[in-house]
């Protein structure tokens, strides 16, 4: 009799344990960056729900990072800058899936010409996300163009807010550190490109999905499946960009197909097998390649 009761309880506990484990969601925090569009494609296609992945969307890279740090996300996307900030706090943090490297996707826009910035004595207003790769880009730009002696006024805003700036309303010399697709709207608003990761900046910027060792082990199967979906989405993008665009359009602000196509030229997908050279480059940029899916 007692053995039967014990068996019943064991089955109950075991089944509740299984249910609990299966029900654990993997929450991934992402920002609106053209390189992460395969994630949005997978979500829009409904691929993520069956494998219990919830995609959270925020507009700021730094907020994205802090969402993970606060425990509201299990993994986050970002560049090596966001990775290096948190890896000091959690040494088990690691990139698990690579998306792309920026090849013009990160840009610096302005309302003046480069010479005007060099010659001006006025305070230069800089709009950027302070706790993100934007800072590194700015420092690289200032160093490259010898503008470090200028008086800089930092204005920390999220990219959505920055994207609403209009050239005709700004009188002072202004620099905007942004990335695609936000740069498209800013160009429409009268700003012109001063430098990008394709031209005028030496910085190597790569995007990846990060998580710590423990989370990776708990959700390893989900990560593996996600990697397959990302590869699948990129394949769709390469074969049928129109279909891909229409699917992810709601996630990409108000970008038309041509602008979307152009922005794709600002990144290089690095989801496939890495060359030795690229692997070395990534490691030099502070993004370890060991353990990548």
């Amino acid at each position: 009799m007692f053995q039967k009761i014990l068996l019943f309880f064991l089955i109950l506990v075991f089944s509740s344990g299984c249910f609990s484990n299966n029900g654990t969601k993997l929450r991934i925090s992402a920002t609106t960056w053209i390189g992460y569009s395969p994630l949005f494609y997978a979500k829009a296609k409904g691929w993520l729900d069956p494998i219990n992945i919830k995609l959270l969307n925020v507009v700021s890279l730094s907020e994205n990072m802090y969402l993970y740090k606060a425990g509201n996300a299990d993994a986050y996307v970002g560049t090596q800058y966001e990775y290096n900030i948190l890896v000091n706090e959690d040494p088990t943090l690691k990139p698990v899936i690579l998306f792309d490297r920026s090849h013009g996707g990160d840009v610096i826009l302005g309302n003046k010409t480069l010479d005007e910035y060099i010659q001006t004595d006025e305070v230069i207003n800089v709009y950027l996300e302070m706790d993100s790769i934007n800072s590194t880009l700015l420092q690289d730009f200032l160093k490259f163009h010898k503008l470090r002696n200028k008086e800089i006024h930092y204005i920390n805003q999220d990219q959505l807010h920055i994207a609403s700036l209009k050239n005709d309303t700004l009188e002072k010399p202004t620099l905007i550190i942004t990335y695609t697709p936000y740069n498209i709207q800013l160009r429409k608003n009268g700003f012109h490109e001063l430098a990008s990761t394709k031209d005028g900046l030496e910085l190597f910027v790569a995007d990846a999905l990060f998580t710590n060792e423990k989370t990776f082990h708990i959700h390893k199967e989900k990560f593996v499946q996600l990697k397959k979906f990302i590869d699948q989405a990129i394949t769709v993008l390469e074969e049928d960009p129109q279909e891909f665009y229409l699917t992810v359009k709601p996630y990409l602000l108000e970008v038309n197909f041509n602008e979307f196509q152009n922005s794709l030229g600002d990144i290089i997908w690095i989801n496939k097998e890495l060359s030795t050279e690229l692997s070395m480059r990534l490691n030099e940029a502070g993004l370890p390649t060991r353990g990548l899916l």
Partner: peptide, 29 residues
């Protein structure tokens, strides 16, 4: 998010059964 709510309360229910149902039962046994 109904899924999240279901999971949250299911997990809570499972924990309750485990810690207040199963372990005390084992103890009594």
């Amino acid at each position: 998010d109904k899924d999240e709510l279901d999971i949250y309360f299911s997990k809570n229910r499972g924990d309750f059964i485990l810690y207040f149902g199963f372990f005390p039962f084992l103890l009594i046994l």
